[in-house]
Design a protein around this nucleic acid. Structure first.
Lengths: 382, 382
DNA sequence: TTGTATGCGTTATCAC
DNA sequence: GTGATAACGCATACAA
């Protein structure tokens, strides 16, 4: 009693049905022109043998593919990414594609490894959130091979200038099949709407990838203006590391609303960095009652929950608006006002972008910026 | 200027390096005994041509596989499932496997379709949460083909034939996979279209699958006892449809704590069904102040947030304990007490179970029941 | 240590 | 409409 015997092949089915291999192939692929008598004999043989079509084998034929897309995000456990992944999955599923999701943990090397693995697996396309310190050149290597779509962040975000002086670039040669010296593709259409600062040492031309972003700066600016409108004067910007593109953008919008020179260091803008909700809560707790701040702009949902937590513990509160909606936002009083982004639409748009490329469309790469929505629930008030 | 030229193969590399195919194959697969001179020539050819190992093609060889596992859950957007999926992904990733996650939306037919698709894709193993009305016999078909692990719920027991109706169920200990004979669960339902013929030879016994569950009944019982201990007498059981295994189990634990006959209809136990948080909030709002209930056991996190929402709106509250921890639980006062289950451990255990089977271990199928933890934060008090 | 020949399961070509 | 046969990209006996 072998627990897992070798599965039957088309050949077995053909033999059992007394037809040729090709006829079975036709039947399996839903060809119309088959003698009904043979068709039913084949069908019988298939069920009797328990035959299963082998898509992996079929996919190695030229022109065929496994109809699988790879999705690289930073952490599937984060609700932001899981909702996005679900949206991608839904859209792809409607079009007959499966999705392979991997979490890069914001680690550039791991990110590179995962991208290479997905390419080795011969996925048809790649939807990728570029990692924090993106120096591996994965995009330049991948883009010539298959459709690549960047989500949430553009490729090659600008690193903080001071640290750029001596980038301890350890060019780890990823084994084996790696290090493909990217043929510098002369990009036909440069995206005008987003002036990407080129990295020192990196290729001057960005790889051909569609990009789907949210209007981080605009959303942050609107939120900050709303706080100002209600009398706030010393707003705390509470967010994650400014190494993250989204954080830089939100901070830029924040400073724009304050009328600050993006490059200056005006003390009207306090900035605090917190990676976890607990850290965010600590920061807020320490500042509460000192009079040094009179409002909080929480630049992601961990910062928001941290701030709310600090307020709840202290039994007092400050005007607050967060970036990204979150479940708890409606459960406290006053409700937490947020800059909401349409995560599901980002996923859907990204999926459609890959599908369009797979369908053969080859327009110049586009950058889509999705609008954000200011949802006021009361927490913006003094 | 072909945007996506045909990728180079091993043959191309071999030709470019002036060696045989086999040698390239060894190099790519990390073989040790290769002439350093040839190895470097191969490496050069690989980078020069931009060669990528094709795992899809390699996987069709006997004994080889793509090292991909399929995960079937109901909805990746639900934090419960996404945390679970992340945990599975992490464990698999550490062992060189990729994960394909699909959402069945609790639809049995869609579930069947997805399982079939994953099998066609030749995944190495399957981790599956059986859908609500599981009548397609997917498990019996899949289990002989590849390792299958059930998570969160056991496989649907063979549908009880009418003669099986012995309502005098002795108070047997719950686990494993036992005693799911919910009072309200009537006939197999409308779709008699697939009475699934038992395989010739294979009897009607359950397929060989490992199963990972949480102690739903035990957790619910502990929570209910805690509410009783603080004086509650008319506790509302607020949850999703009792068609769901977890709901039946939690309800069983709830009734056990109340000392109720599982089959009776004692009015000390009010049961309300709500699928969304909004519905749950409605139910609670309608009951608040009527005196008909004096505490709430929320049987999932949507019910919990709905109840909290209703409390917040009404400006009053009742003792409450929920099943499943949730983000907002610590942000309100009093903090929401919950029965917490270790979702990450469930994912890790499931992943290890498939990996063990793939490694050749063939013990009899086991059912693992993970302990739950009662986390008290204050909301259980009057 | 390296090369040759063959097969994996499927699909495409092109005669019949 | 159907069927032999040749790929597809890779890995493995087996021989050299």
């Amino acid at each position: 009693m072998n627990p897992m015997p070798k599965p039957p092949t088309m050949k077995d089915v053909a033999a059992a049905a007394g037809v040729a291999l090709k006829t079975v192939s036709r039947h399996v692929n839903g060809a119309t022109n088959i003698d009904p008598a043979l068709a039913s004999r084949i069908a019988t043989a298939i069920t009797e043998l328990g035959y299963r079509h082998n898509l992996a084998a079929a996919s190695i034929r030229p022109g065929r593919s496994a109809k699988v897309i790879g999705l690289v995000i930073s952490d599937l456990a984060n609700p932001y990414w899981s909702v996005l992944a679900r949206s991608v999955e839904r859209t792809l599923s409607e079009n007959g594609y499966l999705l392979m999701t991997v979490s890069s943990e914001e680690d550039a090397d791991r990110h590179r490894l995962l991208v290479d693995r997905l390419i080795a697996q011969r996925v048809d396309g790649l939807i990728v959130s570029p990692p924090r310190r993106d120096t591996t050149g994965w995009a330049a290597d991948a883009a010539p091979l298959l459709p690549v779509v960047a989500i949430d962040r553009p490729l090659a975000p600008l690193l903080p200038s001071p640290t750029d002086a001596h980038p301890a670039a350890a060019p780890t040669p990823t084994p084996p099949a790696a290090e493909a010296s990217a043929p510098l593709l002369t990009s036909p259409g440069a995206d005008a709407d987003a002036p990407h600062p080129t990295q020192p040492g990196a290729a001057a031309d960005a790889p051909l990838v569609d990009t789907i972003l949210a209007d981080n700066a605009g959303g942050a600016e609107a939120a900050t203006r709303e706080l100002l409108r209600h009398g706030a004067r010393r707003i705390l910007f509470l967010g994650d590391s400014l190494e993250l593109y989204t954080m830089r953008e939100r901070n830029a919008g924040f400073r724009r609303a304050l009328g600050l020179d993006p490059a200056s260091d005006d003390d009207r803008a306090s900035v605090a960095t917190a990676h976890t909700a607990a850290e965010a809560a600590e920061v807020v707790t320490a500042l509460l009652g000192t009079g040094r701040i009179d409002a909080v702009f929480a630049a992601n949902n961990r910062a928001s929950t941290g701030a709310v937590d600090a307020f709840t513990r202290a039994g007092t509160r400050l005007p607050l608006i967060g970036f990204d909606d979150f479940e708890a936002a409606t459960l406290v009083r006053p409700g937490i006002s947020v800059v909401a982004q349409d995560v599901a639409q980002m996923g859907e748009t990204a999926a459609h972008a890959v599908l369009a490329r797979l369908a053969g469309e080859t327009p110049p790469p586009t950058t889509t910026t999705l609008r954000t929505r200011l949802v006021l629930r009361g927490s913006e008030l003094p």
